[in-house]
């Protein structure tokens, strides 16, 4: 991990010295969001942020936390159903963006005879199958290899809490993300959480007070950029209030 963050402006060329040194030299360099390749061997930033590298995966990308979510294959997202056609649901991941499609049969135990009944504006936890540049994004609520939902599917009840895209990534990154407020609360409370990379977290804490407490704690940690100590204080405060 670099000790000084390399701040990038769009158009900056990444010097070879800043690129990751792969543990396995045969692994090709993977470019993540914010970097693009100009043949033959120039790598240029396209988004303002800081350069991040991973030597194990031989990957480089730009870290930033602003702007609208752009769909990417394999992302876990919370989608809102808008309409239904004969065999797909049209869903939206963010307001005012082109709709994504979720086939009726991409649910656990769905057959031609028993399709899921999802009224407009209901929520589903889904995974992005593909996000090609020139066709609509496709979602699924089953794991394609097992046919089981693996936690995906309709979300009933609960409440949505918008968080920054960076926070959503941190929540999905486990320990590396540095968010321990949920574990702290889970010691004394029971609740369900679904994190969408599109910047939304679904929480069901069983009661209005609990759900609100958990959701707002997450938003506070996000907004204030709280570290471990700050998060612990938030956990204490929430548990005291309930």
């Amino acid at each position: 991990m670099a000790s000084t963050t390399q701040v990038l402006l769009p158009g900056d060329t990444i010097p070879t010295s800043a690129l990751p040194t792969p543990n396995n030299p045969k692994k090709p360099l993977t470019l993540g969001p914010g970097l693009r390749h100009i043949p033959p061997s120039t790598i240029v930033a396209s988004i303002a942020g800081s350069l991040s590298t991973d030597n194990k995966k031989n990957a480089a990308w730009v870290e930033y936390n602003s702007g609208r979510y752009t769909p990417s294959a394999n992302d876990l997202v919370i989608a809102t159903i808008l309409t239904s056609t004969a065999d797909t649901f049209n869903c939206t991941l963010t307001p005012h963006t082109p709709t994504t499609s979720l086939p009726h049969l991409s649910f656990e135990n769905a057959t031609r005879k028993t399709r899921p009944q999802l009224p407009p504006h209901s929520l589903v936890y889904a995974r992005i199958v593909s996000a090609p540049r020139d066709s609509p994004v496709e979602l699924t609520c089953v794991d394609p290899s097992t046919g089981k939902s693996e936690g995906l599917g309709p979300l009933k009840g609960g409440m949505l809490f918008p968080v920054s895209l960076g926070m959503a990534r941190r929540l999905l990154a486990g320990k590396k993300g540095g968010v321990m407020v949920l574990e702290g609360l889970a010691e004394k409370m029971g609740f369900e959480v679904a994190v969408g990379r599109n910047g939304v977290v679904w929480v069901d804490g069983g009661s209005v007070k609990n759900t609100l407490g958990i959701g707002r704690a997450l938003q506070e940690v996000d907004r204030e950029g709280l570290g471990e100590r700050g998060q612990r204080k938030v956990v204490e405060r929430v548990l005291r209030g309930l």
Binding site: T80, T92, P95, H96, P119, H121, S122, L123, L155, K156, G157, G158, M159, L160, W202, V208, K209, T211, L212
Partner: peptide, 24 residues
């Protein structure tokens, strides 16, 4: 583009919270 409409989950939650005299 019309204003994006709120989900049924959020709508139900806000209404339930109001019945318990709670605002978000």
């Amino acid at each position: 583009p019309r204003e994006a409409e709120i989900s049924v989950n959020e709508r139900a939650f806000i209404q339930e919270a109001l019945q318990e005299k709670i605002r978000l």
